[in-house]
Every structure is written in C-alpha cells, then in structure tokens.
Design a protein around this nucleic acid. Structure first.
Lengths: 205, 205
DNA sequence: ACCCCGGCATGACAGATGTCAGGGTCGTGG
DNA sequence: CCACGACCCTGACATCTGTCATGCCGGGGT
C-alpha cells in the first residue's frame, strides 16, 4: 500500500453502528478512521483536531443535527468534505444537506460495499446522491410551510393540545389553530397528526 | 486459531448497518458470519439452511418483526440462540423477546466491543440484558391494553379519523371512540396522539 | 345456576379541532 | 407611494373527539 490514505471522521449517536462502520471502512487499505464522535456538537472540534479528509455525518444526532454540523464543518475546515449517512432518505434532508455544503448523501439501505466507493468519490471532489432520492426531492419540493407554521407543527408533534402549544410558543389559541389549519392544508392532510407525518416524511420538520 | 468458531446469522433491514456489523464481527477470530438477511420472513429459511449457532435479529423489519422471528427460530432450530440487536430499547420489546425465547437483548447504543462479548455469552448459554433496560421493563410493566384496544390504537397511529378506523377494522364509530378513550385512560395520556407515543415508547404496540 | 370480564354497541353531551372571514402591523420590493 | 406576503389576532360555527352511562353477548370460572 503505497498510495495516500483518506482520513475519515465518523459521527453517529448509536455507538454500535458507529463502531461497526469504523470496522467496515477500516477494512479498506486506502481508508483510515481517525476520529469518532457520538453527538453533533462534538463534530467541529474533532474536525479541527484531527483534520479528516471526509466527515461522515448522521442527520439525527443529539447536540446538533448533521445538517447544521455540515455547515459548521465547511466553514471551519473547507478542505474537509462531508458525506451524510442517514437512516431516513427524506427529500428535505437531501436538499438542506446539499445547500449546507455536503458533497454526498447516502442512506443506510445502501449496500455496504458502496459506502467506501462513496467516500472515495466524495474525496475526489465528486457529488454522490442516490438518483431515486434526487427525484423524490424534486417531487416533494421545498417545504411549503412558513417558519411559524413549521414551528407550530413541530410543537404539535407529541399530540399537545392547542392550549399547550399556545402557551409554549406565547401565541393565542386562535393563532395556533390558524397555523395548524394552514399547515394541514399545505400538506394535503386531513388533520394535524397526518400533517406532522407528511411534513416529517418529507424532511420539512 | 484452533478453537471452535461461532457461526452467526445477521438480520437487519438496513443493508449498510448489516454489512458493517458483519465487518465488525468478522474481525473476531472466533466468530464467523455465515448468512445475512434483510427481512424478517427470510430468517427461518436462512437458519435452516445455514444452521447458525447464534442469530442476531433486529426487531423492526419488513416481512416479520424480530420478536415473531425469534419464536419461529427457536421452534425450527432449538440449538440456535437468538440475540436481539435493536435501535429502540423498549421495555415491551424486551419482555416479549425474552418470552419468545431470545437469550439476549442489546441496543445499538451499546459500545461496539461489547457486541462480540454478548454473542459469546449468549452462545455459552448465558442471558445478556442491559440492567437499566431490565429495570425499565419492570417499571413499564406489561401492556395494560386489551388486544382490541391495541389494535385500535395501532390504527390511530397515522392520525386516521374515527370513521376511517371504524371502516378499516369493521367496527362502529362509537366502539372505536370507546376503545380509544379506554386506551387514553390506561396510558395516562391526554389524547390519542399522546397515547400512541406512550404505548409505542413502552413497546406495547 | 350465577358472576365476572372483555368486547361490542348506542346515545347524550361538553369540549376540542379545524375552517373561514375579516382586520391590523411590519418588512420588503417596485 | 403602493402591493404583497408573513405573522398575529378575533369571532362564528360545523364537525370531531373523548367521556360517561348503559346494555347485550359470549366465554370461563366457581
């Protein structure tokens, strides 16, 4: 092995998955995992300390989500490329990750041998996105919800009644009902519960 | 390496995670992954074909959940022990998995080096359960919901209105409302949305 | 026999949800 | 300046949700 090694950072809150991915990538002679972190807010510090070539970030992590961490990494270490590795291929996630500066986006349904390939392509400056997911992203489009509607729908996630949401967000109950109604209409749902599922599934929340 | 090898089967619907676990366990000289499947309904056939010593099963899989697959495996191949490896350490899952015949239950938050240890202990006839999870299980207890209440609450998961649930389950709307009301009371929730979350979080659905 | 329990059903009703109309304020762009 | 969109608010109202009381049926246990 005389060629250069691609240095990697892994960020995933599930320790077992993180360790397994490290083992998988560690089998590749041209890849080396130099750091692993379990929460989003540890990513940038680890990037600055270890200077990886490619950071593989999960989306849903405690402390900071992978998309926000992507933007931070790109700002703090422009030479580090980001590959998102996530359970849910939600169109909104794809769009926002690419806008945040990610070079690639793979879902955990991807066959294992393809991950090392994706890492190498990202490292070589290419963009790696599943074509089906790209299509879904075009179909789902950008979130039709205003920031406030998104916030109210987020608050409605756990079934909170209008009064509780109004209290939590310092709004009147009528305003909350209006925002929910609007979000229900924009997502084509029959009620708030379904609106939450639609928006969540599209990565709009 | 002169000792015996423990033969493993992996079942997880996420190809990347499955492959990564295979790589992780494959690093152990006394472990050998002899089969991998991506859905629950493929588990038994693969067990019968490959005769693994230990089957590592995820819970939430298409085709058949890992708990049902556990019972099937234990019936079809009593010499094969089952280790559940799951994202969600829900108390109800733990209880039902052990009752179905699983010898171990680990969550994906478990540090990677502990997985091989867990496999060896299960193979040696020991039982492997996280003590915190066992405590949660005792606290949460068995589901207080009747089968019918569970079924109605399941149907309510995606926000379906009462009329739609009644139609889907061939019940009257009044009966659906009664079952939902009962489930809300038993879970201590304020409405059906919260009841779904409570029951889900406890592994009762 | 009776009793208990779970499941299903009906009906009444209070409160919550969602829709719609209308109005005001603020910031942005032409 | 005006127009527009986002946000917030109020009020009216139809519909849905959840609760409660009541009753019937079937199965299992004593």
């Amino acid at each position: 092995m005389t060629g250069p090694v691609i240095r990697l950072l892994l960020a995933d809150d599930q320790a077992l998955v993180r360790g397994a991915l490290s083992a998988l990538l560690g089998l590749e002679p041209d890849l080396e995992v130099v750091a692993e972190v379990g929460s989003g807010d540890e990513v940038v510090a680890a990037v600055l300390e270890h200077r990886p070539d490619v950071a593989l970030l999960d989306v849903e992590m405690p402390g900071m989500d992978g998309i926000t961490a992507t933007a931070e990494v790109r700002r703090a270490s422009p030479d580090t490329r980001v590959l998102i590795v996530t359970t849910f291929g939600r169109p909104g996630y794809l769009r926002r990750a690419l806008q945040a500066g990610a070079s690639g986006f793979v879902v955990k349904d991807t066959p294992a041998p393809q991950l090392a390939d994706a890492v190498r392509r990202v490292h070589a400056g290419l963009r790696v996105v599943d074509p089906d997911l790209a299509t879904d992203s075009l179909v789902a489009g950008e979130s039709p919800l205003t920031a406030r509607e998104t916030e109210v729908l987020q608050a409605a996630r756990d079934g909170a009644p209008v009064a509780a949401i109004a209290q939590r967000l310092f709004l009147s109950e009528g305003t909350v009902r209006n925002h929910l109604s609007s979000a229900i209409g924009k997502t084509g749902a029959v009620n708030r519960a379904e609106a939450v599922l639609v928006a969540d599934g599209n990565g709009w929340l």
